[in-house]
Design a protein around this nucleic acid. Structure first.
Lengths: 299, 299
DNA sequence: CCAGATCGATCAGTCACGCTTATGACACCG
DNA sequence: CGGTGTCATAAGCGTGACTGATCGATCTGG
């Protein structure tokens, strides 16, 4: 009856799927099955009904146990975390999820927050492209830095961090490379890649599925991270629009950055779970509010 | 960071002594040291101050962690326990601590309680002689069956279960064996044994340290359990008074039971932690109250 | 009604780590 | 200054946590 088993139980109670549970916990499916079997043996009765192969369901006892254990397990994690912070002299932590290439542009916020609130530990974590809101909901991060639109009823949209125009990344050898700027309509003439399984309206906010002129902007193959994407750009296989500030993050000799003045700018905001709002979150939101959106371009 | 480690941490925080902690958890002292070291490594700072060899102390962080973890760990154990009970069809359990030889005499109570409250599981556990109130305070049992006087401010004294006269256990070959009864004063003439480390007033309640005539009733060597004690009785090395009902528990051909009419009778009561009073405890106390003390002798 | 896909259970094998005994290192005490 | 009580460290053993491979059952689409 160990802590790990409880985590497995709670995750399975959430996912109701052995494979996905295993994936989330970086375990083999076999192990999840074994742990649950052993757990049920210790309790003395079944917690999940898996007679039907199509879907796993909680038994009444299982549901009750999940309800009992969820807050307790959370409190236990919080206590341990609080102790870890206390040894390092902090009262609490704020985990901000964002893309790595956004970090330098927001330097002013990090600095202001850490000087204003030295007893809060600031931790920057890389949010996954594929499921940014999921990491927020699972409590892996406290606030998320992302672009609009965010259309999620359980999330609060906080202050705007900055608004940025687009630049198009193309290979130095690409036929567009010599242009001084690129119109939106041109996007439809070349191949694009987007990360797999993004929420649709969110993906559309970044790069529309159609041009204003009505032409389809087609995605070809999916990638899992930005570096892989840039690799495809540099070989000329695809082109890809970025918010302008990322130019200063990568220094890639084989890539050209071309302004796209008529593609509507991206607005980056702070987002958090409404029912998980906390002092550090409010403190950071207030800091952003006080400084106002960053306008003087990336550092 | 496992559940067992937390238990070790909390036990050490309570005992402030590695050896006793190890004993309570049935571990080696070395292992306790290893677990705490590893735990501190994970937290990132020390939880106990053991620079002074004489006594171990909690650091501020450690004290805070103990305060945070104590209720959470308890709630976690409760949740798991609740689930175990639920699978077997019970709502709650009542753990009664008592000496094994008391069990048959109380049969009427067990029966009445289980029929009146089929959704409460009754569990009889053998309370240790050496530290009966400790097991109550550590939450290992819910109620204790014991004799008066009980002089513990944090404990509630419940209804009386029965009142019993003494019989003296002597070897069949002992010089007293042929007597039809034995006066109190005779106790001072022979060797006695008591279990080590009993609370003093409690031991005195069972067998006074002095006879009414002022003679000392001297104990010789300590034993750890009743069987060991009876062994010494049967070889004639010691004599020992018991409450009369235990005669029917053991059938020992080499031992004689002699009435002791002038030794003041023992009163057995129910005792529980005042701040841990619960529905099952109240239900059992009410059952005992309703039936009244058992007077018709042991079954 | 069959072929293929999906998903949980089971098996056999490997390796880490939980725990022990033995010993070391240190702080107090007489 | 040894003796005693106490925690830390070392070395070694055995269990059980975990994996990949496979089985067997159930559902879906043509």
């Amino acid at each position: 009856m160990e802590l790990r088993d409880i985590e497995v139980f709670l995750t399975l109670a959430d996912e109701l799927h052995f494979g996905r549970t295993a994936e989330r916990l970086h375990l083999s499916q076999a192990r999840v099955s074994q742990i649950i079997t052993e757990y049920e043996r210790q309790i003395g009765g079944s917690l999940f009904d898996r007679s039907n192969r199509r879907d796993v369901r909680l038994t009444p006892v299982g549901a009750r146990l999940r309800d009992d254990l969820t807050p307790v397990y959370g409190a236990l994690r919080d206590s341990l975390n609080q102790a870890k912070l206390a040894v390092r002299g902090f009262d609490a932590e704020l985990r901000v999820g964002l893309m790595p290439f956004n970090v330098p542009a927001l330097h002013g916020y990090w600095e202001a927050f850490t000087t204003r609130h030295p007893h809060y530990e600031l931790r920057l974590r890389y949010a996954s492209f594929t499921d940014p809101f999921g990491s927020l909901r699972r409590g892996e991060i406290d606030v998320l830095v992302t672009w609009l639109p965010v259309d999620e009823p359980d999330l609060t949209i906080g202050p705007t961090l900055f608004t940025d125009t687009h630049v198009l990344a193309v290979a130095a050898t690409h036929e567009l490379a010599s242009r001084s700027s690129v119109p939106v309509e041109a996007l439809a003439d070349f191949a694009h890649v987007m990360v797999a399984n993004m929420p649709e309206t969110w993906e559309n906010g970044y790069l529309p599925f159609r041009t204003p002129g009505g032409k389809t902007i087609k995605r070809v193959e999916a990638v899992t991270n930005a570096d892989e994407l840039l690799q495809l750009v540099s070989t000329g296989e695809i082109i890809h629009p970025f918010p302008a500030h990322v130019m200063h993050y990568w220094s890639l000799p084989h890539i050209r950055w071309l302004p796209m003045p008529d593609l509507s700018p991206l607005t980056y905001v702070l987002v958090w779970r409404t029912d998980a709002e906390s002092d550090p979150i409010r403190a950071f939101a207030r800091t952003v509010d006080d400084l106002g959106p960053i306008t003087d371009g990336p550092v």
